[in-house]
Nucleic acid binder design. Structure first.
Lengths: 243, 243
DNA sequence: TAAATAGTGTCTTTTAGACACTATCGC
DNA sequence: GCGATAGTGTCTAAAAGACACTATTTA
């Protein structure tokens, strides 16, 4: 915001302003691995590298509204869990001009991930390697469907690392995991999502106990179908009363 | 950041850009209560209300650098723990013009807090009431030294609430508490800081056990002086090897 | 019945809370 | 010795991990 002596110090017409953009990390879990939707840059700078979708913030548009707009226009998606991640503001992060970028994290179910892929041909799915080297802040590795390491544009490897760390931190005490799952899901699917984000195996009985004790899960009495073994019960996420 | 078709879509000279500012929450613990340094607005809008110090980001200045500059110019301080908090980007948050504000959290020891107060007469210390109503996102109450509720400018009550929640969330698993304490401190002082931020009393033996088990504390063999009772041992914070 | 996964019972280990107790200072 | 706070020992309670066991499905 602005200080007491705003008017004395600041004449809006005098000083150059940075451009403000939003960048969206479109994140899901596919085949028990964290996955992200990328677009290939075909222009300088960083032509040929991969980036997360983004767009500039309009002068009459809030940051959240810009994120929703980019989600719609670049991923063909009406809704999703969307939260602000971090703002990247190094001077030289884009060689053309000064851009301050507010990164957002969008969490997609596997269905939404697939729907975005087919609606927007420019998008490519990539896998985030978990765990990665230097998890205390280092950039992540991203693999193509053919398991080739992808070169990311700008500071987008840092943005993806930030997204993974944020997700991890919130996994236990918040309901973000349910944003990655369909309406109905089994406890095994829930555990798969947790394991994919954390990059570690979890103890099954302890996991079930903790999840059920939270009071966020409602058993439906229905069971999955089509498996060649004992079907698992389907659960639904419901906000707890004290939440 | 920017998308693949950056150049086609965007001509920097055509679109109006928001101003980008940084706002600093200067936070410390005084007399076992969370305290913040505020400045009184003497201009419209929100004249007479209190705000956290801030400033505009220069075109050739990173966000972090702008925060450091504001810390120096508005609080007279060379260093402190400084971390980005959240970016506030509602369209109407300032009635004069569009301003996107990146909030930073600066953690001050009680000494640094007092030094800033005497170096910068415009600053006033205020107490943050903990706990506050609607801790899941609601704005905080801020009290003057005379225990009067202060009216805050803009969305600064939300910024302060965000600062408290961030600090709370990091208190257990990170080393932020040590940024609020002097070089040498007693375990009781460390517990006081935790209790002030959390707004609850903690169990003494359990607290000592947990803190000592983390391996972040080095006993100095020295003891505090001047107390009319058994003096406590002084500890020093040291980064753990695996940190 | 075999294979595979769902789901549970229970023992152990770890961690946190409660609470009383001892230790050490100034006066 | 008294008052006050530092620091500890230990019991209990709660939570997490380990691991084997039962249950239920298709083939």
């Amino acid at each position: 915001m602005n200080e007491t002596d705003f008017l004395e110090e600041y004449d809006p017409s005098v000083f150059q302003r940075p451009s403000v953009a939003v960048d969206l990390v479109l994140l899901g879990v596919r085949e028990s691995r964290p996955a992200v939707l990328l677009v290939k840059r075909d222009q300088h700078p960083h032509a040929g590298r991969w980036s997360v979708p983004g767009g500039f913030v309009g002068i009459g548009e809030s940051l959240d509204a810009a994120a929703v707009r980019v989600l719609r226009d670049k991923a063909g998606m009406a809704h999703s869990h969307l939260e602000q991640l971090y703002t990247f503001g190094a001077v030289d992060r884009d060689p053309r001009m000064r851009i301050v970028s507010v990164a957002y994290l969008a969490l997609l179910t596997e269905q939404a991930f697939a729907a975005a892929l087919s609606a927007m041909p420019a998008l490519m799915p990539a896998t985030i390697q978990v765990p990665w080297a230097g998890e205390a802040g280092g950039p992540v590795n991203v693999l193509s469907p053919e398991n080739e390491v992808l070169a990311l544009a700008f500071d987008h490897a840092d943005i993806l690392a930030m997204a993974m760390l944020r997700l991890r931190g919130k996994l236990d005490y918040s309901d973000v995991a349910f944003a990655l799952l369909p309406e109905l899901f089994t406890l095994r699917q829930l555990q798969d999502v947790h394991e994919a984000i954390l990059g570690t195996a979890l103890n099954k009985p302890a996991f079930r106990r903790r999840q059920l004790d939270k009071g966020w899960l409602a058993a439906t009495g229905a069971y999955e179908a089509g498996a060649a073994f004992r079907p698992a019960e389907l659960y639904r996420f419901q906000h707890s009363t004290a939440d």
